[in-house]
Amino acid sequence: MSELAEQLAAGGLELVELVDPLVPLIPPRLANAATSFPPTAEPVPHSAVELEAPDLVAQANSGWYQLASEGGLFGTDREFLVAVEQTGEWWWAHVRLAQSWDVMGRGAASILGRGQGHPGFVMLSLDGSVIVVGNVSQSSVGSTLARDPSRNAGLREFAPQLADFPDVSEQEKAAIGRWLQNAP
């Protein structure tokens, strides 16, 4: 776990603990899909910075923080969950945002993406009601927010389909089932 703590610390995330995989939270892969199923016709909250921006990482960090703060990602002491891969399975790590952080730069270069300025993360509020996904499109880098995934009919309909994908492990299938059974 010390290697994971070091990787998270690169982006300014302090590891509190790994979440028990039996806790009925939305699985990370399903959470990542949440932004593809907007529950209303209203625009999905997001922050984006053009790839060519000279201060791409600083702007993307600022946009992520504003979206996460205003959107309700952070709990007490700026704590939340972030998806991490451990022994071939993705699940949640409970983290705290440090005073000094760089999620879109050093974090994306370490464990939260595919390199500096190229995020690829999924974050979840402690109560499971807010998801923030960091992503890269053809022309921009940014973050997208989804609220109340358990009440999102499109996402709930997609969940059993995801469980049938051939690359979904038995652990992930079970996690999808627990989430569906325990979601309001």
Rank of each mutant, 00 (worst) to 15 (best):
G117C: 04
S139N: 14
S100E: 15
L124R: 08
D102Y: 07
W91N: 06
V133S: 08
S150F: 13
S100G: 14
Q99L: 14
S129N: 13
G115C: 09
R147K: 12
A93L: 10
G128K: 06
S140H: 13
T87L: 13
Q138L: 12
S125V: 05
I111V: 13
V136S: 10
D127G: 03
D102C: 07
S110L: 00
M104A: 14
S150P: 09
Q161L: 15
V141M: 02
Q116C: 13
A109D: 02
H118S: 02
G128S: 03
R151V: 05
M104F: 14
R156I: 06
G105D: 03
G107Q: 06
E89S: 07
D164Q: 15
M123H: 09
S139P: 12
F121K: 09
A108R: 02
S137V: 11
V132F: 01
D102R: 06
S139V: 14
A153K: 11
G142P: 03
T87M: 12
V133Q: 05
G113H: 05
G154E: 07
V141G: 09
G88R: 05
L126A: 01
V122A: 01
A109N: 08
L112A: 00
G134S: 00
G117H: 02
R147L: 14
V132H: 04
H94E: 12
S150R: 12
S137Q: 11
A108T: 08
D127I: 06
D164I: 15
G128Y: 07
I131G: 01
F158S: 04
A98P: 09
S139R: 15
G115E: 00
L145H: 04
G113T: 08
S143V: 03
A163G: 10
D148T: 11
P119C: 01
I111N: 10
R96S: 11
P160A: 09
R106H: 10
V130N: 08
G117K: 08
R147M: 15
V130C: 04
S143G: 03
R96G: 04
D102F: 07
W101K: 05
I131D: 06
S100K: 14
T144L: 12
L162T: 03
G134V: 04
M123K: 01
N135V: 06
Q99N: 15
G105K: 05
V141F: 03
D127N: 09
R96H: 12
R106Y: 11
S125A: 05
A159R: 01
T144M: 13
P149V: 04
D148W: 11
D164E: 15
R106S: 10
G107W: 02
G113Y: 06
W101Q: 07
T87R: 15
L124M: 01
A98H: 07
R96D: 09
Q138A: 12
A146F: 00
T87A: 14
V95Q: 04
V132M: 00
L97M: 10
R156D: 00
S137R: 12
V136D: 00
Q161V: 14
A98Y: 10
D127W: 13
V103Y: 03
S125K: 08
S150Q: 13
G154A: 02
E89F: 07
L162I: 08
S150G: 14
G120N: 05
G107S: 03
L126T: 08
S137I: 09
S129Q: 15
W92H: 07
Q161D: 13
S140R: 10
W92P: 05
S110H: 07
G120I: 06
L112H: 08
G113E: 06
I111W: 03
